[in-house]
Design a binder for these strands. Structure first.
Length: 175
DNA sequence: ACCCCGATCGTA
DNA sequence: ACGATCGGGGTT
């Protein structure tokens, strides 16, 4: 079975964020390899939305691993995360880049652009990627190398190198 | 009820 | 470097 299940997402967030590079994300008719991720861990990470406890928005991050966390930002964009770790341990991996292979060959760099292109909105918050028929992640055997950098767009937690970018030569052109 | 500002992006 | 655009969440 290639599809990633709950045990996979329930691992440490940093491990999942790195390992998701090169995995294939499926959303409806769209299919593509994950090229960039960021880790957010509620405990000790002030940049994480869940850092100051459970709120209506962050509730899904406190729930089971493998569930989508989609949030609205800057009045016009949505960003897709996948919840990680054990129940009641708030953490998630932000999907920042996707190299689409279907239905077109296109590189989607940036979480806002990615969601806009795929049509991911608040309606897709809280979906279980380990059971959904149209929204899931699978392992196609790709294991790209990567680099780690500070995360983008945050003002706290910038010392952590929790952004992971797959090597271009394996999964396609970055930017 | 109010107000500040953000896990972004396109344009300058 | 900056503006667009609006919901979340802390504060009053």
């Amino acid at each position: 079975m290639m599809r990633l299940k709950k045990d996979y997402f329930a691992q440490s967030t940093l491990d999942v964020a790195k390992d998701l590079l090169g995995k294939e994300l499926i959303f409806r008719e769209f299919k593509g390899f994950i090229t960039e991720t960021e880790a957010y861990i509620g405990q000790g990470d002030p940049a994480c939305h869940a850092a100051r406890g459970k709120t209506p928005r962050t509730t899904v991050m406190f729930g089971p691993a493998g569930v989508s966390y989609v949030y609205f930002i800057y009045g016009m964009y949505f960003c897709l995360n996948i919840v990680t770790e054990a129940d009641d341990f708030p953490a998630a991996v932000l999907i920042r880049g996707l190299h689409l292979s279907q239905p077109e060959n296109k590189n989607l760099n940036g979480p806002g652009k990615l969601c806009k292109h795929l049509g991911i909105t608040r309606d897709h918050n809280g979906l279980d990627l380990t059971t959904s028929e149209f929204f899931y992640v699978q392992d196609k055997g790709l294991k790209p190398g990567y680099i780690a950098t500070p995360r983008i767009g945050i003002k706290v937690g910038t010392e952590k190198l929790w952004r992971f970018i797959a090597n271009e030569d394996i999964v396609g052109v970055q930017s």
